[in-house]
Design a protein around this nucleic acid. Sequence first.
DNA 1: ACCTGAACACCGTTCAAGT
DNA 2: ACCTGAACACCGTTCAAGT
Lengths: 195, 195
Amino acid sequence: MAFKMLRYPPAMARNKRDIDAQTKREAIVTHAHELFMAHGFDDTSMAMISRAAAIAPNTIYWYFAGKDEVLLAALDRLIAGLALEYNTKHFRSPLQRLTWVFNQFDAHHKLIQAVHARLDQSPALRAWHDHYHQALEALLTEQMVKEGKARDRAQLMATVGTFVIEGLLSHPHSQAQRKAILAWLAGEAPSSQPG
Amino acid sequence: MAFKMLRYPPAMARNKRDIDAQTKREAIVTHAHELFMAHGFDDTSMAMISRAAAIAPNTIYWYFAGKDEVLLAALDRLIAGLALEYNTKHFRSPLQRLTWVFNQFDAHHKLIQAVHARLDQSPALRAWHDHYHQALEALLTEQMVKEGKARDRAQLMATVGTFVIEGLLSHPHSQAQRKAILAWLAGEAPSSQPG
DNA sequence: ACCTGAACACCGTTCAAGT
DNA sequence: ACCTGAACACCGTTCAAGT
């Protein structure tokens, strides 16, 4: 009776339980992440995720409010990992920095694509997207200002830059195209003239 | 017996039937277009379209292979209309031309968003998208070459341009931002300096 | 607290049958 | 040729019940 009011079982068991729960939650996210990457968000069903995690489909709803929240958790973990690596790395040039960031996104572009596809349906994903979109824009702006650009010019180019990055992520293109565009973006350098 | 091999009923009726069929087909497309714009592709069910067109849900499958084909028909009609208007119009400046094109897309951006969301699921939509993406890029390239840009530079900027247009279509932004970005895109003009 | 079987209210699509 | 009622194989999610 009384213990029914406790939010958790007693201390000893509580710790163990919490760890198990956390591990299981992460397992769900891991499997979901892989499946989203392999088949896309729409073509990954809750049943597929639950099968991969060896649980009943509805058990996912104990850990997450819904499918979008699973995606959100995968995204958060992805970004946290990237941020960590970004901060410990140092880059030889602005182009190298930009290329690294782009390549990280590109390696997980199916996840990012899922975000864009669900923007209108999920306010949570909309908020997530807008937040990191703005963060990327700010990062590009500061980079350009540091390189001596006027702030309002830098802001414009940063917006353009995020659009270009998203464009590259979601459109097929050659390696040469990518290289030229990133180079242009990093330095606004003129494309190389043949001959 | 014999007439069963004819693909159509006899002449008199055939004409009438064909007209009716065409009209009905267009009615389906019109209602679908409106619903896609209002609710988005995913949140528009075949049942909703059929209700709007006052037919049974499965009747749509007599006219179209599936939901994606309905979207495709709506897109084709949209583009045909735009192309017609574009060719009869003349513009005072490259910026005016670009702004007009952009505004047309923007007015129907929910449809274009649907294309992007379905790219991976539907090869037909993928083909459609790639075709018109390339067409837009070519148009921008020729425009820039006409203005005296080197061809490979123009090609790079055209790719960037289509990414920027898609970015503007799919991201919230202020009117001022839009104006500045389109101006930059049209002439690569420097953003205005305050003071 | 954690997990599940069964059900719910959909969905796009198919099929057999009508006219 | 054109249209439909009924069914199919899903889907994400909910609920009552178990431990």
